[in-house]
């Protein structure tokens, strides 16, 4: 394993009844944020559970900071923090009583940091968690996750359902977190705008298979949407096309190499695209009469 990678998945496969996580491989470099993107049911949470060794994989290996996720599970879990889409703490507790519980669960628990983060997020210390809004609950999870010296932060749809202000506050915290070169974030989400804002790299998953993985800037730079008539689609080389969306006024063609395409298809309108569009074109290809 490269010492530059915080997380390394190789050929991870897990078969369920009706779903297979199929040969999943990707790397998350140290000191970076990776967006893990896919529609609901694509396999994001299953992959995260595999990383955490909650699921026992049929094949493949996962290394976290060089340690095997199965054989060295107890050693590496102290260095992992996970933020789920729902708060996993008893709702009768207060942030203050939660701190007393959590400090017994982590060797490197930092109570001062925890209370600093509570104050920063303006979270009350003595209010019961069940009286918190969803945004407050997610902030509380972040406070707990960032207070025990974890090096790898895994977020499972943690920003879903939050308003833009809260999401923005959370994203700022993640950027601060990776300021230290050792810290890394794997952020699963289907809100691609958040990923686009902060993620250094991105991995797309669909139907349990990895569609695309790479640096966000490269993926955005490489892909482009070409607008043409339905008849002109045949003029574009198949190897340049990700997929085609037919519409009333012609066709949108997602190209996989913008620089080359701009040279080859001079005269057509070629626009920059977004992660949202890229995901859509990869997921929807050959999925109906409007898609090719």
């Amino acid at each position: 394993m490269s010492q530059e990678n915080a997380l390394e998945l190789r050929g991870v496969t897990h078969r369920f009844d009706g779903f297979t996580l199929d040969n999943v491989s990707f790397d998350v470099p140290k000191g970076s944020i990776m967006g893990f993107v896919g529609q609901n049911g694509a396999g994001k949470t299953t992959t995260i559970r595999s990383i955490l060794n909650i699921l026992h994989n049929d094949s493949g290996t996962i290394k976290i900071y060089g340690f095997d996720s199965v054989n060295d599970e107890m050693k590496i879990k102290e260095d992992i923090a996970v933020v789920f889409d729902e708060l996993p703490f008893p709702d009768m507790l207060t942030p203050s009583s939660l701190e007393k519980v959590l400090k017994g669960l982590y060797k490197k628990w930092d109570g001062t940091r925890y209370y600093e983060l509570l104050d920063r997020f303006s979270l009350p210390r003595k209010k019961k968690i069940h009286d918190f809004s969803r945004g407050m609950k997610m902030k509380l999870q972040i406070c707990a996750a960032l207070s025990h010296g974890a090096k790898l932060l895994i977020m499972d749809e943690a920003t879903s359902g939050l308003d833009p202000v809260v999401r923005s506050e959370m994203l700022d915290i993640f950027l601060e977190f990776i300021g230290d070169e050792e810290h890394t974030v794997l952020m699963s989400s289907h809100i691609t705008s958040d990923i686009e804002k902060i993620a250094d790299s991105v991995t797309f998953i669909d139907g349990g298979k990895i569609l695309l993985s790479g640096y966000t800037s490269d993926i955005l730079a490489d892909h482009a949407v070409l607008k043409c008539s339905e008849e002109d689609i045949s003029k574009i080389a198949d190897e340049d096309i990700v997929s085609v969306r037919l519409c009333d006024f012609g066709a949108d063609v997602m190209l996989r190499n913008r620089t080359v395409s701009e040279e080859n298809y001079d005269g057509y309108v070629i626009n920059r695209t977004t992660l949202d569009e890229i995901l859509l074109f990869y997921v929807k290809r050959n999925s109906g009469k409007e898609w090719r």
Binding site: L52, I54, F84, F89, P90, L105
Partner: peptide, 12 residues
């Protein structure tokens, strides 16, 4: 119900 068991699966 409150996901505590899921949380404990992240602990060593």
């Amino acid at each position: 119900r409150n996901g505590w068991y899921m949380f404990t699966s992240t602990l060593p």
